[in-house]
Amino acid sequence: MPAFFLIVTAGVSYKHKKDNVSTIDIFNESNDGLWCHEFNDSKLLLNEKQQTITIKNGTNEKTYPFSSVIGWYFNLDSGGYDGGFGTGAIRQQNLNNSGLFIEVKDVMFPVWQVKFYPQKGKFHQDTGYNDVKLQITRWLRVLWLRVLSQVINKK
C-alpha cells in the first residue's frame, strides 16, 4: 500500500511540474504586434497589425476584430479544501472556474474563457494562486492598452 501512495504522489508531482512549464506567453518581443498566451487547450492571440483577437477554448476557436470585444473580467476560485478524499476534485473545479473571461459580440459564443496555470507552485497554494493572479493582471493590462486603446482611437 505505501508503494501505491508513492506512485500516485510522484505522478501528481510530475503533472504539476509539467503544467508549470506548459504556459506560453509572448509579449510582442519581436515587435511584430503579436501578443499571445497559451495553456493547454486555451489560447489568446492579439494581432495589433490586423487588429484582431483570436480566442480558443477546447475545440472552439474564433477570430474577431478588436471592435467586437465588449469587455472582460477575471475569476480566481480557491478554497474548499478540507484535506479529505474529495480535495482533488475541488482543486480541479476551482482551476476550471478560474481564468480571464472575454465578452464579444457573438450570439453563439458570447463569453470565452482563457485558462491560466501557475508557473510557480500549485494552484491551491498561495505561491501558485499569486502567480496566476499576476499572469492574469498582466493580460488585463495588455487588453486595456492594446485592444481598448485601438478601438477608442478609431472613434
Rank of each mutant, 00 (worst) to 15 (best):
G83K: 09
A3N: 11
K43P: 03
F85I: 07
L134C: 05
M1R: 13
W72Y: 12
S42V: 06
A3G: 06
Q119K: 15
K122H: 02
D41Q: 10
K17G: 02
V142W: 04
L34F: 15
A89Q: 11
V111C: 10
S67A: 10
G128K: 00
G128V: 03
E29I: 10
G121S: 03
T52M: 07
P65I: 00
G58M: 09
K62M: 00
F109G: 01
G80A: 07
K133Q: 13
D25P: 14
F74Q: 09
L45E: 13
R138K: 15
K154V: 08
K154M: 08
G33K: 09
P118M: 04
D19A: 12
R91A: 14
V151I: 08
G86T: 11
F4T: 11
Q119F: 06
T23L: 13
V8F: 01
V104H: 07
G83Y: 02
M1D: 13
N60A: 06
F39M: 09
I152H: 13
Q125E: 15
S149D: 08
G58L: 02
T87Q: 14
I136R: 02
Q135C: 07
D106P: 02
N47Y: 11
Q150H: 14
Q150T: 14
R146C: 09
G128R: 01
D41C: 07
Q119N: 13
L95W: 05
S78T: 10
G58S: 04
L44Y: 05
G88P: 08
G71F: 02
K154Q: 15
V151Q: 01
L100I: 08
V147H: 07
V114S: 07
D41E: 14
D77S: 12
N75K: 05
D82H: 05
T52R: 01
G84F: 06
A3M: 12
K18F: 08
A3D: 12
N60H: 00
S78G: 08
N94S: 05
Q125W: 08
K49H: 12
A10L: 14
V107K: 10
W139Q: 02
M108D: 06
G86M: 13
D77L: 07
K155G: 12
S42L: 09
G11I: 11
W35H: 15
T87Y: 04
M1N: 11
H37L: 10
F85L: 13
G99E: 04
N97W: 00
L95S: 02
W139I: 03
N75M: 03
L143P: 05
D41I: 13
P118N: 03
H16M: 04
P2E: 15
Y129C: 01
W139K: 07
L100C: 07
V111R: 06
G58Y: 03
L76F: 11
I136Y: 01
R91P: 01
K18S: 13
N75F: 01
T127A: 12
S67M: 01
K115Y: 04
N28C: 14
V132M: 09
T23A: 15
I152D: 11
D41V: 09
Q50G: 06
G80D: 12
I152L: 09
W112L: 12
A3R: 10
P65A: 02
E61S: 05
G121R: 04
G71L: 02
H124P: 00
T9E: 11
I24Y: 14
N31E: 15
Y64E: 00
Y14I: 15
G58R: 07
I152K: 12
